[in-house]
Simulated scan of single mutants.
Amino acid sequence: MGHDQNPTLLVVDDEREVADAYALRLRQRYDDVRTAYGGEECLHEMDDTVDVVLLDRRMPFSGDKVLTEIRDRGHDCQVIMVTAVNPGFDIVDMPFDDYLCKPIEKDDLFAAIEQQVTAASYDDPLSEFFSLTAKLSVLEAEHTPEQLEESSEYVRMQRRVAKLREGLEVPREDFERMVETFTAINRGEG
């Protein structure tokens, strides 16, 4: 990711109007916004110039499969799931970087993208930290504290986040500012 503040975005949604609406909104701020109408088209369009993918989850060729394929091919990009699917504990092992539930406010969308571009400019643990933080906050919005405590995955992720936080070498105030921005993003219907 060399081009920090001018990332290349790929918006993926099998509903053309939806993809185009997001792209239009994003072009207010970013120069290079591409669209793909569906999973197959997304994989066809993917190359190493893409920095951030906004990926719809519920498509005939599912976003979950597309996500796995993007990672298997080794593309170095951030993936934000954009979806109307309420997340269950199945998201724990999905390798996305952030998860936003539709409908999404423009400010939350921009904040999530900025955050991913920033995180990607640091070393890997920061991306993993934010990916886990996103999963935790999405699950917290959807489940009761009792349900969360019963989930070994949830507890495992909490421990991992705490451990990563100790090992991060990002300057403290930068890190705190990032966490604040990240946590302020509204990810769920909650």
Rank of each mutant, 00 (worst) to 15 (best):
M81P: 00
R16K: 10
R57I: 03
V53A: 08
F175A: 14
G39W: 05
Y30C: 12
K102N: 02
K135L: 03
A21K: 15
K102T: 03
E17K: 08
N186P: 00
T144A: 15
V155Y: 12
A184V: 09
E146Q: 13
K65N: 08
G167E: 12
V161N: 06
S152N: 13
T181N: 15
K65P: 02
C101Y: 00
D4C: 02
R57V: 03
V33Q: 05
T49I: 07
Y99W: 08
E40Q: 15
R165S: 12
E173Y: 04
A36V: 10
Q115I: 10
L67W: 05
T181R: 15
D90E: 08
G74W: 06
H75C: 08
Y22I: 13
V85H: 09
P60A: 07
K106H: 11
R172M: 05
D14W: 02
G2V: 10
E173A: 04
S62E: 08
E146M: 12
D64H: 08
F89G: 13
I113L: 15
K102F: 00
G2T: 10
A111P: 03
M1C: 11
A184G: 15
D14V: 02
D123Y: 01
A119M: 12
E189T: 06
F110A: 06
I80S: 02
E105Y: 07
D124T: 04
E150Q: 14
A120W: 00
T35Q: 13
I185M: 03
R34C: 10
T118A: 13
V53F: 01
M94K: 11
F61D: 15
Q147K: 14
V79L: 11
G2Q: 13
V53D: 01
F110G: 03
E15I: 05
A36F: 02
F96D: 01
F129M: 09
P95Q: 04
D32P: 00
N6M: 09
H75K: 10
P103W: 05
A162C: 13
D31G: 11
R159D: 14
F110R: 01
R156P: 01
K65F: 04
K135E: 05
D98L: 02
K163N: 09
L43R: 06
D90K: 07
P95W: 00
P7I: 07
S131H: 01
R187M: 04
G188L: 01
S131C: 04
M178Y: 14
R71I: 02
L54R: 07
